[in-house]
Computed example of a mutant assay.
Amino acid sequence: MKIDYHTHHARCGHAEGSLEDYVKRGIGIGLDHIGLSDHMPLIHVDPASYYPGMAMPMDELPRYVEEAFALKEKYKGVIEVRVGLEGDYIEGYEEEIERIVRGYPWDYVIGSVHFLGEWDITDYRQTDGWKSRDPMAVYEQYYDAVCKAAATGFYDVIGHIDVIKRFGVQPGGDVTHLEDMALAAAAKAGVAIELNASGLRMPCAEMFPSRRMLVKARELGIPVTLGSDAHQPERLGQYLDEAGAALKDAGYAQLATFEGRRRILVDF
C-alpha cells in the first residue's frame, strides 16, 4: 500500500500545479491512494493585508471541494482519491473552524497548528518572530495549542505534530514533556498523527515527528498516516520510502487511511 495524504496545489497561493496534476503524478509513481488536502482559508486575519499567498480564498473553498470530488469519480478504479483539508487550529476561532469542517463531506481533515495568534511559525518570511520571544515559551504555547486541537474532535489526523522545530530553533531546556503531552492528547482523543516526510528538506533535517516521538506514539497505540506535504507535483511521494522504513523501525505494521471521515487501517 503506497499512500500520500498531504498535498497542496496552486489554489492555496504558495504551491504549484493543479489538483489533476497531482492525481496524474500519483498514478505515475504508483500510489494506491492520493489525499488532496489543501489549506483552509484564513479566518483570523485579513487576507488583503496579511502576508500574500497563505491559503485559498474563502470563495474558492466550494470550488476546491467540487473539483476534488469530480477527480475522485473520474479516476475511480485507477487511483483512490481522497478529499481532505488541512484545517488550521487557531485558538479562539473554534466556531469558524467547525463550520468549515462540518460543512463539507470530507474524507479526512488534518488538524495543524501553524499560527500562534497572527504569527505563522511555519512561514519562512516570519522567522524574525523568534527574535523577540523566549523559545521555550513559544514551544509551550505551540504544544498547548496542539493539545487543544486534538481535543476539539474536529480532526482525523494531527499534522506535522512537532513542526515547531522546522527552522531549527531549539529552546535551551528539554521539551520531551511537551512532546509527550501532545502525543498523550492525541491518544486520548483517538486521532491519528501523520509522519510528514517534508522535514527532511527543512532546516531541521528531520521528519515530523522525530523518531523518539514516533516510537512513543507506537507505544501509545496512536495510528499513523503518511504525507509528503508536497507543494509541487514532482515532490509528491518525496521521502516516503524513508518514512515507511522509519515507521517499520518504530514498530508500525499498518497505515491509517480514510474515507468519509472513517479510519481504515491497512497493512504496508
Rank of each mutant, 00 (worst) to 15 (best):
M1I: 15
K2E: 14
K2I: 09
I3R: 03
D4F: 08
D4C: 06
T7M: 05
E16M: 01
E20I: 02
D21C: 03
V23T: 00
I27V: 15
I27F: 12
G28D: 15
G30L: 08
G30A: 06
D32R: 04
H33L: 00
I34Y: 01
G35A: 09
S37N: 12
H39S: 06
M40W: 09
V45Y: 04
S49F: 15
S49W: 14
A55T: 07
A55F: 00
M56I: 14
M58T: 14
M58V: 15
L61C: 10
F69R: 04
Y75N: 06
Y75E: 09
V81G: 12
E91R: 15
R99S: 11
R99W: 01
R102T: 15
Y104N: 12
D107I: 01
V109E: 03
G111T: 05
L116I: 11
G117S: 08
G117A: 06
G117E: 07
D120G: 13
Y124T: 06
R125I: 01
S132P: 00
P135S: 11
V146H: 05
A149H: 04
A149W: 04
A150C: 02
G153A: 10
F154H: 14
Y155V: 11
D156P: 05
G159E: 13
I161F: 07
D162E: 06
V163R: 02
Q170V: 10
G172T: 09
D174P: 00
H177V: 07
H177P: 00
L178F: 09
D180N: 12
A182L: 13
A186C: 15
K188Y: 08
G199T: 12
G199Y: 10
L200P: 11
P203W: 00
S210I: 04
R212G: 12
R212H: 14
M213E: 13
L214R: 11
K216W: 06
K216E: 15
G221Y: 04
V224R: 11
G227F: 03
G227R: 02
L236K: 02
Q238F: 05
E242M: 04
L247Q: 10
K248L: 06
A253R: 14
R262H: 14
R263H: 08
L265V: 10
D267Q: 13
